[in-house]
Simulated assay, not measured.
Amino acid sequence: MKRTNATKFAAVAAASALALTACDNADGDGASGDGEGGDADTVSVGLAYDVGGRGDRSFNDSAFRGLERAEEELGVETADFEPADGESDADKEDRLSNMAMEGYDLVIGVGYAYQEPIESVASEFPDVNFAIVDEEIEGHDNITSLVFAEEQASFLAGAAAALTTEEDHVGFVGGVETPLIKKFEAGYITGVEHVDDSVDIEVDYLSQPPDISGFTDPAQGRESAQAQHDRGADVIYHAAGASGNGVLEAVADNDLTFIGVDSDQYENADDDQKPYVLTSAIKEVDVAVYDLIEAVGEGELESGIQRFDLSDGGVDYTQSNEEAIEPIQDELDDLKQQIIDGEIEVPTAP
C-alpha cells in the first residue's frame, strides 16, 4: 500500500531541496551520524548507488537527498556506497551482504541493476529490510519496491518540447536501451505527438545492454546531443544519468533548449547553463526514500510494490525556470490533469 499522497509529496519535496553536500562517510566506510557507537535503538540505513554514483545531478543525487534528509531530520545513521566500474552482480551481492552483516536495519539498492542481487541477498537475511528503486520485485516479505510512472512525467516533457520547438524538430537521448528507459522514450514521443504530430523526433541511445556505459559517459552524451542538433533538433530531453551532463553542455553551447530528468536539473545546473533548462521530468526518489526510512523507524514498513505517479505527486514536471515555463504552464497543467483523470493514457513502451 502506498503511504504517500499528493499533499505529503508536495510538502516533503519542498523541504528536501537540500544542497548536494557529501555524507560524513562518502567512501562508504560505515554509518555516519553518531557512528557505530550510537544508540542501539537508532535506525541505520545503507544505500548503494546505481551506475554513475553520486554527483550525476539526476537519479542517484535524488536518492542521496532523501538519505541525507532522513539523517538530519529523523536522526538515523546512514552510509552510502559507490559502484565500481564494470562491477558484476556478484560485486553487488557482496556489497549488500556486507551491509546486512554489519547490522543495517534497511538496505537500499538504487536502480534496476540490483534486482537479482537483492533477491539473492534478501533470501539469506530474512530479518533485514531491503528496498529497491526502479524495479518490481514480488514474493519477498522483506523487499519493498519503489517504482514510478516515468512515462507520465515524460509525456509532459514531450508536450513541453512540442510547445516550445521553433524548428518543429526535437530529440531524445537515452542512456542504455532497457525497458525502463524505453518508458521515458514512450512517454516523450507520445507527449510530442499529442501536441503536434508533425514534429520530427530524434531518438538515440548511448549504449546497448549489457553495456551500461551510456549512463556514465558525458562526452558521449554531448556528442549525441550535438549530432541531434546537427540534424535539426532544437529541444533535447535525456534519460541518460550522468551522461546527461554532456547533453546539457551541448545544448548550452548551441543555444538550444534542454529538458532534464529525475532531479530538477535547473537547480543543479551551472549558472551559465540555467537559461537553457526549460523543465525537468522528475520522480520524487528523494521523497520515496525518506518516507521509506521513516516507515522503518515507526515500525510501519510495508513490503511489496509501492507505485508513485502524477496523481500523488510521485512524478511531475518542474517550474523552477519560471520565465521559460510560464507561457506553457496552463497547457501542461491541463494535460497533467487529463492524465490523472484517465482521459489520456500514456504507454510504457514506444
Rank of each mutant, 00 (worst) to 15 (best):
Q115K: 14
K8R: 13
A324Q: 06
L335G: 02
L292I: 03
V199D: 06
D105N: 15
N142T: 03
F59Y: 14
L96I: 13
V315D: 02
G109M: 02
K336W: 07
Q226I: 01
D29R: 11
I282P: 12
E93K: 11
D334G: 13
Q273A: 08
I344C: 08
L248T: 07
Y317L: 11
G260Y: 00
V51P: 09
Y237A: 05
S145H: 04
T257M: 04
T7M: 12
G46V: 08
Q306F: 10
A159D: 02
A269C: 03
A70E: 11
Y205R: 03
A240G: 02
D330F: 09
S62G: 03
E185Q: 12
L156Y: 07
V128K: 01
Y317F: 15
L47F: 11
H140Q: 14
G103L: 06
Y112S: 09
V121G: 01
D127G: 01
D291V: 03
G187D: 07
D204R: 15
F172K: 06
L18W: 12
L156Q: 05
S311L: 05
Q265F: 09
G171M: 05
S303L: 07
G214D: 06
E102N: 14
A349C: 03
T318W: 03
Q265L: 05
D316H: 10
F172W: 08
S58L: 09
P210Y: 08
G214Y: 08
G342I: 00
E177Q: 14
G175Q: 06
G246T: 05
V51L: 15
D39L: 06
R54H: 14
D211E: 04
G37W: 12
Y114T: 04
S154K: 01
V346A: 01
P117D: 04
V51Q: 13
E82A: 13
V203P: 07
G342V: 02
I201L: 10
D91P: 13
L74R: 02
A269R: 00
S243I: 05
G30P: 02
G46M: 08
D39W: 00
A17G: 12
G38P: 08
G111P: 06
V76E: 04
K8H: 10
F148D: 03
G66Q: 11
L256W: 12
Y290T: 05
D309C: 00
D61L: 03
D316K: 12
E322Y: 10
Y266P: 01
V296Q: 01
K183E: 11
A252Q: 04
Q338A: 14
D333R: 11
K92W: 00
G342N: 02
P209M: 08
A227Y: 09
F172P: 03
G52E: 04
Q226W: 01
T42G: 09
V147R: 07
F64K: 10
D80F: 09
K182C: 09
D217T: 13
A324T: 05
I236H: 09
L310S: 00
G314C: 05
K336L: 07
A26I: 14
G314T: 01
A149H: 12
G314H: 00
I143D: 03
G30E: 01
F64A: 11
R95N: 13
N268H: 15
P126A: 07
L301V: 04
V76W: 01
E294R: 08
G53V: 04
D262S: 09
